[in-house]
């Protein structure tokens, strides 16, 4: 396996391991704020998840190009935090305009959490991991896509659980974020089972 085929296999492995083994929420605990804030309903959770998948896939690719063609030649790679955040912010603004134009209902439901995708740590995390792990462009995009899918899987299943809990008698002090964090912990316990599968680095 050389050249393109090897690269594609690597990309596939990295993509799957980003969904299960190295899930952004359940094993790195990144992107927890919207994970807790927007997981009350399956529909909004799914909408936000789709937005995150979209933003992650594209920003990871753009950031890769910016890093390798602007920062590295100029030897300015310590600027990567600022540049990555600016690119992410601009891209999120763009997505926000699209969603407002095509799905006003989703726009209202997502509310403040849509612009907050900018500061979703999962998104900056993917860009930084791609630098640390020295991924190529194809692998980076696959990694961004897989991370987004993993994040979406986690938030949608969390929303399903929370919808079912609507009728339960949860202790007063634990309602809302408390029970959500407990569920997230139990989900992370279950996802430990995947550790070691497809150790795609």
């Amino acid at each position: 396996m050389t050249g393109l085929t090897g690269e594609m296999t690597h990309a596939l492995v990295v993509c799957f391991s980003a969904i299960f083994t190295g899930n952004m929420v359940l094993s790195y605990f990144l992107g927890l704020c919207p994970f807790i804030g927007v997981s009350r309903e399956i529909k909004t959770a799914f909408g936000l998840g789709t937005a995150v998948v979209f933003v992650l896939t594209f920003t990871s690719g753009i950031n890769w190009a910016a890093y390798h063609y602007i920062l590295v030649p100029l030897e300015l790679d310590f600027f990567r935090f600022i540049l990555f955040i600016i690119i992410i912010a601009a891209f999120v603004q763009f997505v926000e305009m699209i969603i407002e134009r095509f799905s006003p209902l989703l726009y209202v439901n997502l509310g403040i959490f849509l612009p907050l995708i900018t500061v979703n740590c999962a998104i900056l995390g993917v860009s930084l991991f791609m630098v640390i792990r020295d991924y190529s462009l194809i692998v980076t995009v696959a990694y961004g896509f897989g991370s987004g899918l993993g994040w979406m899987l986690a938030i949608v299943s969390m929303a399903g659980i929370r919808q079912r809990l609507n009728e339960s008698r949860i202790p007063y002090g634990l309602q809302g974020p408390g029970i959500t964090l407990i569920i997230a912990g139990l989900m992370a316990l279950a996802f430990i089972g995947f550790s070691g599968v497809l150790q795609g680095r």
Binding site: I42, S157, G160, Q163, G193, S195, L198
Partner: peptide, 24 residues
Amino acid sequence: FTGYVEGIMFAVTIANMFTPLIDY
């Protein structure tokens, strides 16, 4: 594929986690 020989323990918990979503 993992170091855990008792896969059923994790599998059941993961399935529990997706149960409300599957029903929905």
